[in-house]
Design a protein around this nucleic acid. Structure first.
Lengths: 159, 159
DNA sequence: TTTTCTGCAAACGATTTGCATACAC
DNA sequence: GTGTATGCAAATCGTTTGCAGAAAA
């Protein structure tokens, strides 16, 4: 973790919440704190977070966990990741583009998710295979954003 | 669709099924045929297929649709794609690597999925943005395969 | 005839929602 | 105080499964 690229901490939470018209609550703080405390153990599901809360003797309900995770994504403090394992996962968002653009190597057999920090999209599969020993059978590239139609539509709304 | 790169057709189905110890059934044939007939309308969900079957006055049950889609993926005749919209989607598999490695541009606003056939992974986002007018906010690269641990484990099993 | 396949309905697991109460502002 | 947030339980949605009957091989 480099010094000049801070992860979001719970300190920023109150400000971001009120910026967006939301209230600060102990539940929201506690849930974000779990991601800060477990920043080594990436990509937690709602159930993972809920289990950690129960270990911590916290009474926060599962519905609140789901609602808070959504909210923290909306605030940009968490990012949603999908490994196709049937549940939504979340990571702390980072200002560091190296971390932000990391790749996930998902093993079809043991379901292990290996992080591969390499911000060159042009990296060849062969190179990955050589470096990690990961045999690539299939890859999937997704780009999320706004299509030209929707961009045009947005501009109409503004002007 | 180029002449020298055929999509799988229903003709191949019987052979592939028996190769893998499965039986030919009218249901399986009919479901694959739907993908052939609708090869212009890519990435159909189980529900989409089921609705087309009902339009065709077919009595095939939804459970059979799910089971057949799984099976056709296992046989390599379909490929599973995930657009994060909450349901599994499927496309006809193609022997053409250009088609096989196409990208999906998923609009966050209208949910439209635009296909972008370009087999150079090293293509930069800026280039995509320029060519398609699609504003990229986020991208996700997934590699599916076997990690070195599982590969080693498989080799033990063979020898 | 033997095994696999189908269709139905019930089960499932992740996520969402309605609603009354509790809390932040 | 007023409106938002929480917790619970019930609802939802895509998908899977158990089982008895039907159909391939």
């Amino acid at each position: 973790m480099s010094e000049n690229h801070q992860l979001f901490g719970t300190e920023d939470l109150r400000g971001k919440l009120s910026e967006h018209g939301y209230k600060m609550t102990p539940q929201r703080k506690e849930i974000l704190q779990i991601f800060v405390d477990h920043s080594d153990y990436h990509h937690m599901s709602a159930e993972d977070v809920y289990n950690i809360l129960r270990e911590n003797k916290s009474e926060i309900g599962l519905a609140t966990v789901y609602r808070s995770l959504d909210l923290l994504c909306e605030l940009g403090m968490l990012v949603h990741v999908d490994f196709g394992d049937g549940c939504a996962r979340y990571e702390l968002n980072s200002a560091d583009p190296k971390v932000h653009h990391h790749h996930h190597l998902i093993c079809l057999k043991c379901k292990k998710v290996i992080e591969f920090e390499e911000d060159l999209l042009e990296m060849l599969e062969a190179y990955i295979e050589k470096k990690s020993g990961f045999q690539i059978l299939n890859h999937e590239v997704k780009f999320f954003g706004y299509c030209s139609d929707c961009r045009a539509e947005s501009e109409e709304e503004i002007f």
